[in-house]
């Protein structure tokens, strides 16, 4: 169990070679081996969603994914969401609409929404509510998170239409 496997993780477009125990989960590998502490661990049993990252474009619970399972996949974390200094529309709208308080669930919420909007850019309000109910937030009561995702989806659709 303590033997290490050599794997390569591709995170936010960069490749990282690392040796991990088979039992090491992706969240720990991202945080402790790669120093990407924007991915948070809230429960380690797949309910809270604070650890949500994208794997090949789809949201996954990185606490329920072994690091070695992620080999060969394109992983995206909150650290890769902004375009340089330009915030992603989701980040921008979470900021403007007070979609966060303590900020602990925020990276997971952002990545969940990013993945969901990639799959369906035209989600209606009820679909947004349903998909965002995958993750827990203890501070906001969710309303501003839903508003922020709605507003970001509108911005992204408008940008997509232009570009």
């Amino acid at each position: 169990m303590n033997e290490k496997l050599d794997i390569t993780l591709t995170v936010n477009g960069r490749s990282h070679a690392l040796g991990v125990e088979p039992r090491r989960n992706l969240a720990d590998a991202l945080r402790d081996d790669l120093g990407l502490t924007g991915t948070h661990v809230g429960c380690e049993h797949g309910v809270c969603g604070a650890c949500t990252v994208l794997m090949d474009g789809r949201p996954v619970r990185s606490c329920l994914t072994f690091a070695c399972q992620a080999e060969g996949a394109a992983i995206e974390t909150v650290e890769g969401l902004a375009d340089g200094d330009r915030l992603h529309p989701l980040q921008q709208k979470f900021w403007e609409l007070h979609g966060l308080q303590c900020g602990f669930c925020t990276p997971g919420m952002l990545m969940l929404a990013a993945g969901a909007l990639r799959e369906n850019p035209d989600m209606d309000d009820e679909e947004i509510r349903e998909v965002m109910s995958s993750n827990l937030c203890r501070c906001t009561g969710y309303q501003n998170i839903l508003r922020a995702v709605r507003a970001a989806a509108d911005v992204m659709r408008a940008e997509g239409a232009q570009g």
Partner: peptide, 19 residues
């Protein structure tokens, strides 16, 4: 007004206990 705390938290630069 929008919060001055938020940019770090939105970009994964927060420093929580485990960080």
């Amino acid at each position: 007004v929008a919060r001055i705390e938020d940019p770090e938290l939105l970009t994964g630069k927060g420093t929580f206990a485990a960080d």
